[in-house]
Design a binder for these strands. Sequence first.
DNA 1: CTGTTAGCGCATTCAA
DNA 2: TTGAATGCGCTAACAG
Lengths: 333, 333
Amino acid sequence: MTDAQERNRRVTAADVARAAGVSRSAVSRAFTPEAYLDADKRRAILQVADELGYRPNAIGAALQGASSNLVAIVVGDTPSPFDKEVATALAAGLNAAGKYPIMIGGSQAVSRAAVSDVLRYPLDAMILRTGSLSPDFADACGKLGIPLISSGRIMDRPLVDNVCVQNEAGMEMITDLLLSRGHKAFGFIGGPSGFGSAGRRRAGMMQSLAKAGLDLTAEVTGDYTVQSGFKAVEALLAQAPVDAILCANDAMAIGAISGLRQRGLRVPEDVAVTGFDDVEMAGWPEYRLTTVRNPINDMVAAIVDLLEARINAPRRAGETRWLTPEVILRETH
Amino acid sequence: MTDAQERNRRVTAADVARAAGVSRSAVSRAFTPEAYLDADKRRAILQVADELGYRPNAIGAALQGASSNLVAIVVGDTPSPFDKEVATALAAGLNAAGKYPIMIGGSQAVSRAAVSDVLRYPLDAMILRTGSLSPDFADACGKLGIPLISSGRIMDRPLVDNVCVQNEAGMEMITDLLLSRGHKAFGFIGGPSGFGSAGRRRAGMMQSLAKAGLDLTAEVTGDYTVQSGFKAVEALLAQAPVDAILCANDAMAIGAISGLRQRGLRVPEDVAVTGFDDVEMAGWPEYRLTTVRNPINDMVAAIVDLLEARINAPRRAGETRWLTPEVILRETH
DNA sequence: CTGTTAGCGCATTCAA
DNA sequence: TTGAATGCGCTAACAG
């Protein structure tokens, strides 16, 4: 049994060097493909390293100046189905790019503290998927040299990169679709005003309606949850009868469909319903929701791309990537 | 402008010491609550540190022997809704405990490579939420001194901790419920054989059925997805008519409900359906699924608890925590 | 109470 | 091609 095992200590390059009868530098070189090292020697060292279960400690390397490959992802406190899909896809995409995503979430208080503490790590970047974050926070990141990438919401700050779907265009497209089907009395279930996306989506709808010479018939604000969509139906119908309900996201649309059915109304025969995001559940047989796709794969690709660009050029100007939405035709329009 | 900012370098304790006119150790002490340091001096140092945007670099501290506070979470390649809920809750729970979860996921190939590479970090622990992982992998963790916590599946290895819901008991409870309602012809939609949970759940059901002197009427194996539950209905009914369908998880139960409705069958009047896990969607108005709760909060609490216990006593024997399932009565039984 | 010193594991420079 | 020496940022032991 080796010394390292006896002491229950992690095996280090020095242990491998001792066991293989070479210098510590040789071990380091064995794990650096482009370093000069006799091929046989390298093989022998890697052999010994494998037997001992040695892997270079990333912490030592990071201290040396290497990239930490650590990336924080901050999600909101009550993640919607869409947020969860994004988090999963983002983690996979970062893994594929050789990065390690640290998830920050939980209640407002917990995540605020965690976000602040995670800055103690020399992160490659911080990815924001949450609505509001105090502006002095961006300064803190700047001082620490940690790049910020905002997704789903534009942060208009010097070195910050942004990735966002074209909310207005997407909502215009789906509003036009309903218009083309002859709908005239539109209800809207909007999102919380704190979210930038909610306002942009509403604006896109209003734009289309205005072009058609129509006004909104009824409007209710939800909180992006299924439950709020369900309850919004009653409030909406109390304002005026409608023949189409546009929702600012899929979760509320799903709730609205149930709310309508419970009142004996058929979707889409009596009232059409549309969503935004195209979450997995939108395609489930009970819903078959007509919606606007917020392309997660494109989002992940753009984030990974911006991340790599910024690592290569830390001082480059902030860039904004706009994702193209797409109308998904199913059976609720 | 300070030297550190000019060079776009992270501010270090040395920078703060220079700016505050104290020694580096004093700066270190200022950030260590229990260290001896004149109160005024500490205040002054923290003041300067704040202005400079300094935070102790966790990498340096970790190298020093401090815990890295980094914990890897490995999820499967095609996470179900339940997996996503677990991942979100686990991340939040770890954050609250001052730990930073690194998510590992994506395709089989990507996550295999990522899992191997992430071991370069001196992780506090690795949490496994995925089905199969080669056994030599546990050895690798052992050699590196990285504790393993397996959730949802028992890993019977010396120092490995486990957290798992009582699958058999849960399934027995819900089978008994259907039995007490007078159901006689049972169909079962099972999970993939690679998952330990699928077999245990089936066993619990068979146990209850045997006690009642009944046998299974029809059986189909799905892959834990909604789609597979939907398609399983046809195969099941082709075998024999049933008046109750038990499913090994909620996603398949949700699919089965839709499959039944599409064939003009009413749930639960014609056929009862039950699930397992109690995901968020199980409570949605279109489903109102009667199911067995797999208690996520308890799971997270147990994992955090085991993690802390193991950090305090790295050589303690592996412990298994059994979570208590609970039948959730809704409207499909 | 405080400054000086050593060493964590590593990659890399320098000198051979 | 190789080994010895250096320093990354930090904490803790030591000496004052």
